[in-house]
Design a protein around this nucleic acid. Structure first.
Length: 466
DNA sequence: AGCACA
């Protein structure tokens, strides 16, 4: 009667609190797994869509006995374990814990992160990207940027389902050749999910679009052709200047905090925002000034200098492509000094113009996969259900035909934050001390004043040495 | 239907 040599017992494993489940239905959801397993104990971790057919999964119980009870139950049950009517085969995993490699990119969301491989950014226009992805649903916004990984785009759909259908159809595929310049033979799309839910597109430009907001001003500096490299006196091309500096910190023997950077870079003018992040195994920071001139002076003065004596924390400066950073107002890795009282932000309702610069999203997550400082991407409040995603009311320019976009934008922004909001390229507003002070400051730098601000914690004053 | 891969 009893069949003691069922095939599934041929590979009997030593018990583990991790169970291996197979023959799962297509795209079996974690919830379905949990439903099946939770009667036997507390599930502490899962890994779904495993295997070539993505029809296997792992479930980890809190306790070994819970896993044993589930395996024992179905070993003797006349009813097999089932999900959606499909028999699920359960056995002990040969590992004893789930190492969750669930990268953020595998967590579905309505925004896709697309890496376009094998092309120069100019080979694929934003119109092409829009065309390709519109096949799956309304594309709300696109932001493109260049990264070490290549040319990338964030593409915002209405919901995760639409985004997922686009990802499933296009991941690993090439953009059709007829949409590409002749010299490009193929360009493969690597698609993952972004953690963003609402991109903060500030301008319509060749690198970013907001298809939900026809009145969004066109960024004069971001338009094609205007971002020409500066040709230096030696005839060599220089990177385009920017009001935002990128600092790579070499030989970082001591912690470089936001406060330290603020102290150092404030010597040359008002520092508006700072963001620190890790890139390529090193520490980098973005420092935003109100204008290019101030940034240029700071760059020239600080390049190659060390924050601490002894060759520690040597600064290498370049111009960022960004002109306005999206950073958390106050965190250990970022600061927005244009926000007068960060505590106000806690009470700010997303989507409402509660604070003068509500466009500076308090919940903004500047770091995306560790490196995404795209000035045009940040999480905003979720759009109300059934509505077009809200763009920031402060940001919604009325049709002011004939005016300069940059100035239109300024006038719509609360006056106190004009500096913070001013797009690069418009004429620099007077910035007290910005142009004249730095040189003097360089002679008599601020370390004399540095106290407990961060450097003193380290027991040595900041010091710039060659 | 038979063990994950960043």
């Amino acid at each position: 009667m009893s069949t003691s040599s069922q095939p599934q017992f041929r590979y009997t494993q030593t018990p583990s609190k991790v169970l291996h489940l197979r023959n799962l239905p297509w795209e079996c959801a974690e919830e379905e797994l949990v439903e099946l397993c939770k009667p036997f104990g507390k599930i502490v971790n899962t890994k779904c869509n495993v295997g070539a057919n993505r029809n296997q999964a792992f479930v980890e119980f809190a306790d070994l006995n819970q896993a044993i009870s589930m395996v024992s139950y179905y070993a003797s049950s006349s009813e097999p374990a089932q999900i959606r009517g499909k028999t699920v085969y359960i056995q002990y995993s040969n590992r004893h814990e789930i190492v969750n490699n669930k990268s953020p990119g595998d967590t579905p969301g309505n925004v896709l992160l697309v890496t376009i491989e094998g092309v120069e950014p100019n080979d694929v226009t934003i119109e092409t990207i829009h065309l390709v992805f519109s096949a799956f649903g309304f594309v709300h916004k696109i932001a493109t940027f260049e990264k070490a990984a290549g040319f990338q785009a964030l593409i915002q759909f209405t919901d995760a389902e639409t985004a997922s259908s686009a990802r499933n159809a296009l991941d690993g595929r090439s953009i059709p050749r007829y949409l590409l310049p002749d010299h490009v033979t193929s360009c493969y799309l690597r698609i993952s999910y972004s953690a963003h839910t609402d991109l903060n597109i500030k301008f319509q430009s060749h690198r970013s679009r907001d298809y939900t907001n026809p009145y969004l001003p066109v960024n004069p500096t971001a338009m094609e052709g205007l971002l020409q490299p500066v040709v230096g006196p030696d005839g060599k091309k220089q990177e385009p200047q920017s009001n935002v500096l990128r600092a790579s910190i070499e030989n970082m023997q001591y912690a470089v905090t936001v406060d330290v950077l603020h102290k150092v870079f404030s010597a040359f003018g008002t520092v508006q925002k700072i963001a620190i992040f890790e890139k390529n195994g090193g520490t980098q920071a973005l420092i935003q000034y109100p204008d290019v001139t101030t940034a240029a002076v700071a760059k020239e003065s600080l390049e190659g200098h060390c924050i601490y004596d002894g060759g520690y924390c040597k600064l290498h400066l370049s111009y960022s492509r960004h002109t306005d950073l999206n950073v958390k107002a106050y965190s250990d890795k970022s600061r927005d000094y244009t926000i007068s009282d960060p505590s106000l932000l806690a009470t700010q309702v997303p989507g409402l113009p509660a604070a003068p610069n509500a466009w500076q999203n308090p919940q903004g997550v500047p770091v995306h996969h560790g490196t995404d400082y795209s000035a045009s991407a940040a999480i905003q409040g979720q759009p109300p259900a059934g509505q077009v995603p809200a763009w920031d009311p402060n940001f919604q320019a009325r049709p002011t035909y004939g005016s300069v976009p940059g100035q239109t934008y300024q006038s719509l922004t609360a006056p106190t934050y004009v500096n913070a909001a001013r797009p690069a390229g418009s004429s620099p507003l007077s910035q007290p001390g910005a142009s004249s002070m730095p040189m003097q400051q360089q002679q008599q730098p601020p370390w004399a004043n540095v106290r407990q601000g961060g450097a003193a914690v380290l027991g040595r004053p900041p010091y710039y040495s060659r």
